[in-house]
Design a protein around this nucleic acid. Structure first.
Lengths: 160, 160
DNA sequence: TCTGAAATCAGAATGGT
DNA sequence: ACCATTCTGATTTCAGA
């Protein structure tokens, strides 16, 4: 499905506020709210809109031990497929990226304590025979984390 | 603010579906919907709930060039502060983590093309005098990306 | 802090263009 | 595909426990 400028403007308004009222959008874009509703439904059906989520402050539920791991798999396609799956099923892991370069996987996770991290992450990682080596880094500070913000500049010439 | 079991159950329901109806929650938890509303409002005010977001499929808007950078700053506190800020202001960057270990920053970004990436990210990175060295990896496949899912197992004994 | 009922408002459904 | 109207149901408000 092709997105026109109106679709992008709608997406920009709802990406940071899932409950942005149709009426306000209608006022801003100067088109009827039933049209906005119609377009949003279409984007939901086509998979452009993947869902509506609530962002919860991780530290409010004591998830203060944030880690990022660089993982190198042993050579062979099977190893990669199996390892990718295994990593993404670890408790606390919210991101797994298969990358080209020195490493194979970059893994993002959140844990309550060092003990929680050791038990539920690191020890399980040690048990994976598909791994060649790992390098895990502790996040001292999250400076920015806005994974849902995708549309930054609507008037980007590349969109034309 | 202290979260009890009911709060956590509410959060678990809305984290993956911001529009989960109060009435359904009331049925499941067997408490009145006005109480659910009251508790959600409280969590919004106290900052536990940071907002409601729409997840947009990045590839639907042609953001197919996904990168992760490892950045090492030159020594000195000022360098770190300035660099963290500069990195988080780069277009396309959605995540910046200050980490302990071999690197100082891990930077997550999304771009339309290699050219877009070169122009808006890499070339600007090259211009930052605070940087000692960088190592940028291209994401071949995003295996998992669920940053909003924070509460995995409500019945975790650690919560008690 | 919690609850029930009433009032308000937003979103879904409809049908016509 | 678009839009005006109608209808349904979810959220907000408020008084009382």
């Amino acid at each position: 499905m092709e997105l026109d400028d109106t679709d992008l403007r709608i997406l920009k308004m709802i990406q940071g506020d899932a409950k942005f009222p149709l009426e306000k959008m209608a006022d801003i874009l100067r088109i009827p709210k039933s049209t906005i509703a119609y377009r949003i439904k279409k984007m939901e059906k086509s998979g452009i809109i993947r869902g509506y989520f609530t962002s919860i402050d991780p530290s409010s539920i004591k998830l203060d031990y944030v880690i990022i791991s660089l993982v190198k798999a042993k050579y062979g396609k099977d190893y990669h497929d199996i390892l990718g799956k295994k990593l993404s099923e670890l408790p606390g892991v919210w991101g797994v990226y298969f990358v080209l370069g020195d490493n194979d996987f970059i893994v993002m996770g959140r844990y309550k304590t060092r003990e929680d991290f050791m038990k539920n992450y690191l020890e399980r990682l040690m048990d994976m025979p598909e791994i060649e080596r790992t390098n895990t880094q502790v996040v001292a500070k999250t400076i920015k984390e806005t994974p849902y913000v995708v549309i930054e500049n609507i008037l980007n010439p590349d969109n034309k």
